[in-house]
């Protein structure tokens, strides 16, 4: 089974440019005067670097030391500072109500539904009131749906390739509503793109921790 330490060695898993979603949320975070921003599942650190560059107090968390080491190198190359932690996204090592925002892109769906639920609950706990959570999920409409070994409803494990043994969970609208019942959905978008004959289909969610949960 491939581990993230091995997968993150491939250059295609270490892009440098920030995702357009992150560029968009930065504008909103600046408007809200956000300070502490966590990139959960930071991988090789492109968003930790971008957040630090945008003068946020940037935090990067990942289970892979390969990813964290690359993040550290990139920060040094750019003379930037950030806080890095190796951890499991289902058991976050942070106090309650401490982050203004958490971003988690192309990561949360690499686990079973129960793990996704735990992660969302943990993000809810560490966010301040009105804190923002930016996250994406594969949709059931994705061309990848059903590929690999079925490990539970809507979760499949890759049989081969660089992600051999890695899980992919696919969500639908109803599941998303349940997953985010303790959040206020600010924006929910199904981003679909045809690449050759394949349909890339991702739910992009921007959610806010409502007042009264602090």
């Amino acid at each position: 089974m491939a581990e993230w330490n091995d997968i993150l060695v491939y250059p295609e898993y270490s892009p440098e440019k920030p995702d357009r979603l992150v560029i968009e949320i930065v504008k909103l975070l600046k408007k809200r005067k956000a300070v502490k921003v966590l990139d959960l599942g930071c991988g090789a650190g492109r968003h930790v670097v971008y957040m630090a560059l945008q003068a946020f107090e940037a935090y990067g968390a990942d289970i892979s030391e390969t990813g964290l080491k690359k993040t550290k190198e990139r920060l040094k190359e750019n003379s930037l500072k950030a806080f890095l932690v190796k951890c499991d996204m289902k058991a976050l090592p942070f106090i309650d109500n401490c982050f203004d925002a958490t971003i988690c892109l192309n990561t949360i769906y690499h686990q079973r539904l129960s793990g996704i639920r735990q992660t969302i609950s943990e993000v809810h706990r560490i966010l301040r009131e009105n804190g923002l959570f930016l996250v994406n999920f594969h949709s059931e409409r994705s061309h990848r749906y059903g590929e690999g070994i079925k490990v539970e409803e809507n979760t499949f494990m890759d049989r081969s390739g660089p992600e051999k043994g890695v899980l992919h969970h696919f969500v639908n609208q109803k599941e998303l509503e349940q997953l985010f019942q303790n959040f206020r959905i600010v924006e929910k978008r199904l981003n679909e793109k045809k690449v050759k004959n394949y349909l890339r289909s991702l739910w992009e969610i921007l959610a806010e921790k409502p007042k009264g949960f602090g």
Binding site: I63, E65, L68, K69, K72, L84, V85, K86, C87, D88, K90, A91, P93
Partner: peptide
């Protein structure tokens, strides 16, 4: 207890 190695704190749960 959680080790700090190579400047990175490793805050993993027991099973990992």
């Amino acid at each position: 207890w959680y080790p700090i190695r190579d400047e990175i704190p490793e805050m993993l749960p027991d099973e990992l």
